[in-house]
Design a protein around this nucleic acid. Sequence first.
DNA 1: TGTGTATGCAAGTAAGCACTTGCACGCATA
DNA 2: TATGCGTGCAAGTGCTTACTTGCATACACA
Lengths: 208, 208
Amino acid sequence: MSSTPDTATRILDAAAELFASRGYAGTSTRAIADLASVNEVTLFRRFENKAGILQALGARMAQRQAGHAAAAAPDSEDVRETLLRLARMEIAGALEGGGLALRLAFDATTVPEVAELLGEGIPGNLDGLAEFMAEHQATGELRSDIEPHVMAEAFFGLTSSYVMYRMVMGVGAPPSDVATDKGIEQLFDLFWSGASASETTSVMEEKR
Amino acid sequence: MSSTPDTATRILDAAAELFASRGYAGTSTRAIADLASVNEVTLFRRFENKAGILQALGARMAQRQAGHAAAAAPDSEDVRETLLRLARMEIAGALEGGGLALRLAFDATTVPEVAELLGEGIPGNLDGLAEFMAEHQATGELRSDIEPHVMAEAFFGLTSSYVMYRMVMGVGAPPSDVATDKGIEQLFDLFWSGASASETTSVMEEKR
DNA sequence: TGTGTATGCAAGTAAGCACTTGCACGCATA
DNA sequence: TATGCGTGCAAGTGCTTACTTGCATACACA
């Protein structure tokens, strides 16, 4: 019997699924073991403790997040396309973990292990996008009568509520393909019509 | 020593606060008793069990929700004002419980008592608003190239993410006064600019 | 004063949970 | 064949939790 990565991966997959649906505290090590089809004691042999499983999951998520961020790097000057691609990327990343990131954000308020894992991730994302918004307000693509932070919040509110409604509340179905989903594009279009500057909006009116 | 409503109210207030911040399962009856400054056994004397506390809270929330809905009844034909008032009402109601409703929506996926309490509340709200949207697409106030359900989702996504960022993730501060908050109005304006029909948008452009 | 009610205190019960320990088995390798 | 490694099984430990039980005290009211 060899030490294959298979057992650890099975444990992490099971933990990801259960943490996403039940939260960290609401998931027992026994449940993880059952779903992974291993003996409970094996969890503790492969990871120091329950928090160790969470940390390994966090490292895996960070790895995938880095991959997604590289894929979303802007290769054109078009603000709309950049934001749409970012929206799809955010949604895809969040759906990939079965809503785990969103669940962990909730759990971070009460579970020390989770809070430690997440650190200050979320506000940083908001700040970065607000800067992006401010730049493109200055260059005229985005309307400038709305605070950049408000715009960034509306954007991330769109992506996070999309995931929350589907993965948490069971409203609607997850998309078969995030990259081409029409519903995502319509949601984004609502945002974009509201956020873009007046001339850009006029151009879009002709397109309709 | 008289049986005043005070003890039960103190218990419910304490439970609301703790359920909102820790979730139902993450809140112990001992913690509720401590926060309410009563002996733990008193909880079981006033409410049959922990789930009974939750049910009493649900009844209280439903009562307040009914009060809010009456306050938001449309008394004009203006769609924008109606939706803005509804947005403020949704946000005020959600903030009032310290984010409890949102927390319970999460907990409903894994805790049977919570799921039973919430029933089918949320999709119903979405459907109702989608009908409202469809009506006003037909009469020309709202653009008609976006599905009504998508519009309704964008609207409730706005309100729920507003609450989530502030009550759960600690991004930004809760408003001092929902009825007059400029941030809420800007967020709504972003939505409205995207959702309204072209002529209405043009009128707004002159206003800017 | 006697009775009824609400509440506190203390001890206890049964179940669940994260984790530990000892033994045994199966597989791979030298 | 002997050794090392990974894993399963079973029992166990100490702690937490929702809830119960018995006794006692304080207050209101007839």
